[in-house]
Design a protein around this nucleic acid. Structure first.
Length: 561
RNA sequence: UGGGAUGUCGCCAAGUGGUUAAGGCACCAGGUUUUGAUCCUGGCAUUCGAAGGUUCGAAUCCUUCCAUCCCAGCCA
């Protein structure tokens, strides 16, 4: 208590950890086993990150384990490509299932056995009704269901029929196995739910062994129980399924009964996370594939340059509750910035170059100046930066007739060049159209690394020696949507931000950076954080903007207008 | 006129009958600064969806009401 060995938790205390605490205290459980159970039918997104961090995080916090289980009960939509991508994404997020990788399909034999057990107990029957009849007879919110005419078949007949289903004697869709529960139930999930259907389809794991496949509600609870899961965490929409989860386990011979606990999904403002919508963005070529840096997919976040540790911090900060919520994107950005501020080496990059000639600097001279790679952390070391008579600065760092609030260049004003000298703007050269194309400046040779006479200058701007600058392409990203909750719209495509990607083909980077480590996120000082894109090549360097820096000047400038 | 859930500051979220109702983001005001970044300081809910009630004492217990979300796949 008094020492500093307190280990930082992965998950902050919440209603789920309270339940676990109680279960441990009451000796209901002596350990914690959770699971992350994706269906391999799509790519993971930021919403899944919450579930992953919660399940793996809680397990780690309690010295327990977390299984990875592919919920592969519907071969129609599943592929191994997705399964591989899911594993890659979980690992990238920093979690490890060790040897505990399972598939619901591993249990198909067990599941089949439990289904026969229900039949033998008179708790399941083979129904010959068509899908339409079943739907019609299920009733609705205001109308109870009608029992199937096949509901009272004998155990023997049901067994024979179900074995026939398994043996491939019946056509797809011609028969199903249903649990016999309660057609009057207010909970529609309990109105004799279908638990097995006939579907002649190749399965990614079991191949063509089966032509009947168990439904989610029958499979999930049993899979949890077979694996000894203690707490089965899922999202809110499964609350109505919990009675069925419990019914199945209560009515078969199995000695484990995990507790299903539901929490709310993670939604982030100005993004979408539904598979359907993400897919639409890809299909309509609104984005550059599933890993487009603007996508909320894990692969998109990775390509964008978000550090996995920051995503974990984000999920942690967001918390866990049962309240439907939309987290502000600023929370995500803040966590990313906070992380990157501590871990990113600083570098100078000019996004929108403006040429500057320093008239009193010798024509052929090149000086190597030393720049610290991190202003607060000396362990980052320093680098040599070439300085010469012609340099590039940011267009935005010059303004004609600027007022006193503008700390950068305007005629007659002096600023500091980062890591270098003071320069004073003497003249702006314009083209015929009146655009400023070059600045003529003078420098103070005594001002290197400080000032001889102690005079202070308000502004410091970044620059790159013209002769040494490396041309790069820079991609700037803004929110993909202009609406805080695109999913709530009739057509979310209408909310797509047409300016979410801006390509700057003529950006410049200080030398010796572009070909360094592909995984490093750099801070282009006074601009933003950048990381090499996957399309980056030696002769065509491409950098993605990860996140901008906070910009209080933008606010000042805006309020002045 | 069905069933299941949720309502604490603009967005999240602690709180489990006795606290001046944590914290983060956002926002506002200052300070430091060779990044208008970072960092630091201060401000930001007499009130917990509403109304009643129980209690010496209620965000926490009870009642009623209101709002929002989920459910009618042989999807998960």
């Amino acid at each position: 208590m008094t020492d500093k060995t307190t280990i930082e938790k992965n998950v902050v205390g919440n209603f789920i950890t309270h339940i676990i605490d109680e279960d441990l205290a009451s000796k209901k459980h002596s350990n914690v086993v959770t699971r992350f159970p994706p269906e391999p039918n799509g790519y993971l997104h930021i919403g899944h990150a919450k579930s992953i961090c919660l399940n793996f995080g809680v397990a780690a916090d309690y010295q327990g384990i977390c299984h990875l289980r592919f919920d592969d009960t519907n071969p129609e939509k599943e592929s191994d490509e997705y399964a591989q991508a899911i594993q890659r994404d979980i690992k990238w997020l920093g979690f490890d299932w060790g040897r505990n990788k399972f598939h619901a399909s591993d249990y198909f034999d067990h599941l089949y056995g439990f289904a026969e057990e229900l039949i033998e107990k008179g708790l399941a029957f083979v129904d010959d009704q068509s899908p339409e009849e079943i739907r019609e007879n299920r009733g609705d919110f205001n109308r109870p269901g009608v029992e199937s005419p096949y509901r009272e078949r004998s155990v023997e007949e049901n067994l024979t029929l179900f074995r026939g289903m398994k043996a491939g004697e019946f056509a797809d869709g011609s028969k199903v196995l249903r649990a016999k529960i309660d057609m009057q139930s207010g909970n529609i999930n309990m109105r004799d739910p279908v638990i097995y259907r006939i579907k002649r389809m190749h399965h990614i794991h079991t191949g063509d062994k089966w032509c009947i496949y168990p439904m989610y509600d029958f499979t999930h609870c049993i899979s949890d129980a077979l694996e000894g899961i203690t707490h089965s965490l899922c999202t809110l929409e499964f609350e109505d399924h919990r009675p069925l989860y419990d019914w199945v386990l209560d009515n078969i011979d199995i000695d484990c009964h995990p507790q299903q606990i539901e929490f709310s999904r993670l939604n982030v403002s100005f993004t979408v996370t539904s598979k359907r919508r993400l897919n639409q963005l890809v299909e309509q070529n609104i984005v550059d594939g599933w890993d487009d840096p603007r996508m909320s997919t894990i692969s998109g976040l990775r390509r964008r340059g978000y550090p996995p540790a920051a995503i974990r911090d984000f999920v942690k900060q967001v918390g866990v509750s049962k309240k439907e919520s939309v987290i502000s994107m600023t929370v995500l950005e803040d966590v990313i910035r906070h992380h990157l501020n501590q871990t990113s080496p600083r570098v100078m990059g000019v996004l929108d170059p403006l040429k500057v000639v320093i008239e009193n600097y010798p024509e052929d001279q090149v000086e190597m100046l030393t720049g610290a790679n991190h202003p607060q952390d000396e362990s980052f070391g320093s680098r040599e930066i070439p300085f010469s008579r012609e340099i590039y600065i940011e267009q935005a760092d010059y303004k004609a007739n600027a007022n006193r609030k503008f700390f950068r260049l305007t005629e007659g004003r002096e600023v500091r060049l980062r890591h270098a000298y003071y320069i004073t703007c003497r003249e702006a050269i314009k083209d015929e159209a009146g655009n400023v194309i070059e600045l003529r400046c003078t420098y103070d040779p005594e001002s290197r690394g400080g000032t001889a006479d102690g005079r202070k200058v308000k502004g410091t701007i970044h620059w790159i020696s013209a002769a040494h600058a490396e041309p790069i392409e820079v991609r700037l990203y803004d929110r993909l949507f202009n609406h805080p909750n695109p999913a709530s719209m009739d057509n979310f495509i209408d909310a797509v931000n047409p300016d979410s990607l801006r390509i700057l083909p003529n950006a410049l980077l200080e030398p010796g950076i572009a070909e360094q480590d592909a995984d490093v996120v750099y801070q282009f000082e006074r601009n933003a954080y950048f990381k090499r894109d996957k399309t980056h090549e030696k002769d065509k360097p491409v950098f993605n903007q990860v996140v901008t820096m906070r910009d209080s000047w933008a606010k000042v400038e805006q309020s002045a207008e």
